[in-house]
């Protein structure tokens, strides 16, 4: 499933269209109509929501003026800062964990033949297709007080759900396949010839990995990290089930947006939402840069 999210690195990059007109070109009116349809569709579904977030955050429609003061105040609020901090902590644990897993899984699947490989591959994809609500629910079933380990955890005073570990676990589950799914097709496409050569020349496994494999997959890895991070910081459904909503303690940014919204503070809600939207834009920019660098490094 994620093979699509990851789409483009293992496939050739779109060359800039244009160049010499071909006999097969569409008539001009068709080109214009199709381009217009595509742009209107994307405009309605993608640009408008993004614009709405920033407008609502910064524009006071009643006073017909910008509201930078309240905007900054909403972001400096202690609860907002705590939510930002928790979101960063969560991403800082979940993303590296999935990076290590992704590299190991990609090495395993792209470099070896073994029985059950396609089943393993499907299982890695599974968290993509699972509803975020269910991702939260299953951790409640395992770690909740009436759950499998609930009693034991409680007796030893270990908090998992309604605390940071539960939020990290749910986030890790939701972002589980991103890095692996990015690396597997890339490593398969590259083939193992270089690693094979390094080994025959006497390098050991780790040397081969650090000196040969890693430099080859670095752009793909970075690309996976960025997508994984965007999803980790933005997850709502799964985290909402395991959070407990303790203010200043277990609210992540998306949950804080919901809370502000429920406090008649839609300006504040959109202020925090705009931070998340900025993050999304940054993600898209970084992603484009990486694709561009990757194409260049492939051409040279």
């Amino acid at each position: 499933m994620a093979a699509v999210i990851v789409s483009s690195l293992s496939a050739p990059m779109p060359p800039t269209a244009g160049g010499a007109p071909r006999a097969t070109h569409d008539p001009v009116w068709v080109r214009w109509t199709l381009t217009a349809v595509a742009l209107v569709f994307l405009g309605f579904f993608l640009v408008l929501p993004l614009a709405a977030v920033f407008t609502e955050a910064l524009w006071d429609s009643q006073k017909k003026a910008f509201r930078f003061g309240p905007y900054l105040a909403a972001l400096r609020d202690p609860d907002a800062l705590a939510a930002i901090k928790l979101t960063l902590i969560t991403a800082c644990i979940a993303v590296p964990a999935n990076v290590i897993f992704g590299v190991a899984a990609a090495w395993l699947i792209a470099r070896f033949q073994f029985r059950g490989k396609s089943l393993l591959s499907t299982l890695i994809d599974l968290p993509f297709a699972v509803s975020p609500v269910i991702s939260g629910l299953i951790y409640v079933l395992v770690f909740g007080l009436p759950g499998w380990f609930g009693g034991w955890l409680d007796a030893h005073d270990i908090k998992i759900i309604f605390a940071v570990p539960g939020i990290v676990l749910a986030t890790t589950f939701v972002t589980f396949p991103f890095v692996a799914r990015e690396l597997i097709p890339l490593m398969q496409a590259q083939g193992a010839d270089e690693e094979y050569a390094a080994i025959t020349l006497g390098a050991n496994g780790w040397q081969t990995f650090w000196r040969v494999t890693l430099p080859n997959i670095r752009w793909g890895l970075l690309y996976g990290v960025i997508l994984c991070n965007a999803r980790a910081m933005g997850e709502f459904g799964a985290v909402s089930v395991v959070s407990g909503h303790i203010r200043g303690e277990t609210n992540t940014m998306p949950l804080h947006v919901e809370i502000l919204f429920n406090e008649f503070n839609s300006g504040g809600a959109f202020a925090v939402a705009s931070l998340l939207a900025l993050l999304a834009i940054l993600t898209l920019i970084l992603k484009s840069i990486i694709e561009w660098r990757h194409t260049r490094s492939q051409r040279s």
Partner: peptide, 12 residues
């Protein structure tokens, strides 16, 4: 921009 829905949190 096509990838925006991957990057934008669903609640937002």
């Amino acid at each position: 921009l096509v990838d925006l829905p991957f990057a934008l949190p669903t609640a937002v």
